[in-house]
Computed example of a mutant assay.
Amino acid sequence: MLKLFRFYSWLHRLGIPLLPKLLYGVNRILFAVVLPPTAKIGRNVTFAYQGLGVVVHAQAVLGDDVYVGPQVIIGGRAGEKQVPVIESGVLLGAGCRVLGPVTIGRGATVAAGAVVVKDVAAGSSVAGVPAKPMPV
């Protein structure tokens, strides 16, 4: 799934018009993942269960060594032009939502089912709806 993404993303950057869209559709059908070729995905990113149910905004940025659980949404918010930035070493639990112009700091953990609408400090853990820092 991720190798296919990297291939069609590379084709998109080369300016090839049709093939990246076709391969994006194949990725969406085979793996039930919405991963547009314009998203920036770092090295060693892991999508649990081959990205089952994951939706990533076309302009989102994921750093290196990020773990993305199943059913995660990384997307925009109505009325906002900016999208999430996920820094390196972040763990996104199953079913969490990261919405709008937020930054999740390096090494942070987002609990399963959390809804993140504000920035998350590096190394912290958040949970809940909306997500709030958890005591250590």
Rank of each mutant, 00 (worst) to 15 (best):
G42A: 11
H57T: 06
V54I: 15
P17I: 11
T46G: 10
V33P: 03
R77G: 06
I86M: 01
L22W: 15
I74D: 04
T46F: 12
L35P: 01
L18P: 01
G75K: 02
L22A: 10
V68E: 03
V26M: 12
K21A: 10
L14H: 05
Y24H: 14
L14W: 13
V66Q: 03
E87L: 03
V55P: 08
L11N: 04
Q59F: 09
R77H: 12
L14Y: 08
V66Y: 03
D64A: 06
F7P: 00
Q71H: 15
V68F: 06
H12C: 09
N44T: 04
L23K: 04
P37I: 05
Y49D: 15
K21C: 07
Y8N: 01
F47P: 03
F7M: 07
N27L: 04
V26A: 13
V66W: 01
P37A: 13
P20W: 02
P70S: 10
P84W: 02
L18N: 05
A48V: 04
I41K: 00
F5C: 03
Q59P: 02
D64C: 08
V66M: 09
K81C: 10
V54H: 01
R13V: 08
P36L: 01
V54S: 00
K21W: 15
R77I: 05
L22I: 13
Q82F: 12
L23G: 07
E80F: 12
G79F: 09
G42S: 09
Y24C: 12
R43D: 15
A39K: 00
L35I: 12
F47S: 01
V72W: 06
I41Q: 00
A39H: 01
F47M: 14
V66R: 00
I16Y: 08
P36F: 00
I86A: 01
L30V: 15
G69A: 07
L52T: 14
V33K: 00
Q82K: 14
V61M: 09
G75T: 11
H12W: 14
G15E: 13
G15W: 14
P20H: 03
L30R: 11
P17G: 08
